[in-house]
């Protein structure tokens, strides 16, 4: 197993290197950092600007291959992912923003996974009954709605709730805001800001996963071994929980492992809608205010998350399935 993972990892490193290099060329050729200074008033002296951009390896007058090699050397020798057009170090930016993203995603993702699995398994056992139809219909509605629409709709709802109760229950701009001076106020304020986006994320994650889990569960409910379990004398509910659900969790395990690993980068829309300054927002900003190194760094980071996700999935399936573990 260890040898297998090492081999896969090596393959992924090659793929990642190629993909990130390709993105570097794309980003460096289309995002011109000079544009950031074009609107400066008074204009920056061209000579000074050239020197500045050259120092940050962002000068479009330098051949792109040369810039790439400099950048590559920086990454491999000093773990230096480059500078933004205003001279900030990308490493600093990313290492701050990724935790913002994680703080936003963590609770919603975890709760969504648990709710999704339970709802999916439960509705499968009640196939075509009104409760199943209600839940699957609602899940379909959520899956068919872009997440930013859900976010915005939830904000409109929240405003109305706030207005109606006269208390600001929901906060939805940014990660933190003004808060009182009582004990734990900072923490409470953060929770308040997290409430709405977390609910939205939970809903999206749960709706998506419940559809997958329901299908898997329906498949495993028809398996012979569930019939064997019933023939042993297990009542239906126990046979379902112990035999059908346990096996239906194997593919879910791989999905969960994957979504946990990609949590750092997962929520572009939620970040944008709720103004969380996370990695997704940073990426979009980097495209808008040309910052090629930022774009490449976020891409590389996402790629690493995907690789971790793939390997975590393998490990998850090995844990859940003895056929893979011992076969």
């Amino acid at each position: 197993m260890a040898r297998y993972i090492a081999k896969r990892l090596a393959n992924y490193v090659v793929l990642l290197f190629l993909a990130v290099s390709a993105v570097y060329f794309l980003a460096a050729s289309t995002l011109n950092a000079r544009a950031v200074y074009a609107v400066r008033n008074p204009p920056v002296d061209p000579g000074v600007l050239d020197a500045m951009l050259y120092r940050w390896n962002l000068n479009d007058k330098t051949p792109i291959l040369e810039r790439y090699l400099v950048w590559l050397k920086g990454v491999f020798t000093h773990w230096d992912w480059g500078f933004t057009a205003t001279g900030a170090w990308v490493n600093d930016d990313v290492s701050i923003k990724m935790w913002v993203s994680l703080r936003l995603m963590l609770i919603g993702t975890l709760a969504g996974i648990i709710v999704g699995i339970l709802v999916g398994a439960w509705t499968a056992t009640r196939q075509y009954k009104p409760s199943d139809r209600a839940f699957t219909g609602f899940a379909l509605l959520i899956v068919c709605t872009p997440s930013f629409v859900i976010g915005i709709a939830s904000q409109i709802l929240a405003i109305n709730v706030n207005r109606w109760t006269g208390v600001t229950i929901f906060e939805f701009v940014g990660e933190a805001g003004r808060h009182g001076s009582y004990f734990g106020a900072v923490f409470f304020d953060r929770l308040q800001h997290l409430l709405l986006p977390t609910l939205a994320l939970l809903l999206i994650q749960a709706a998506f996963l419940s559809r997958i889990q329901r299908n898997l569960m329906l498949d495993s409910l028809g398996e012979d071994y569930v019939r064997t379990a019933r023939a042993k004398g297990l009542p239906k509910s126990k046979a379902v929980m112990k035999h059908a659900l346990r096996t239906a969790l194997i593919p879910t395990g791989t999905y969960v492992a994957f979504s946990l690993a990609t949590m750092f980068t997962g929520a572009f829309y939620t970040e944008k809608v709720f103004s969380f300054p996370g990695l997704g927002a940073y990426f979009v900003d980097s495209l808008m205010n040309p910052n090629p190194h930022g774009v490449v760094a976020v891409t590389a980071f996402s790629g690493v998350c995907v690789v971790c996700g793939a390997i975590l999935s393998d490990i998850a399936v090995a844990i859940l399935d003895p056929r893979v573990r011992l076969g």
Partner: peptide
């Protein structure tokens, strides 16, 4: 290996 959103966004932008 890289989320498609990122790559498409970069190319569309350019």
């Amino acid at each position: 290996i890289i989320p498609s959103f990122l790559v498409i966004a970069v190319i569309m932008k350019g």
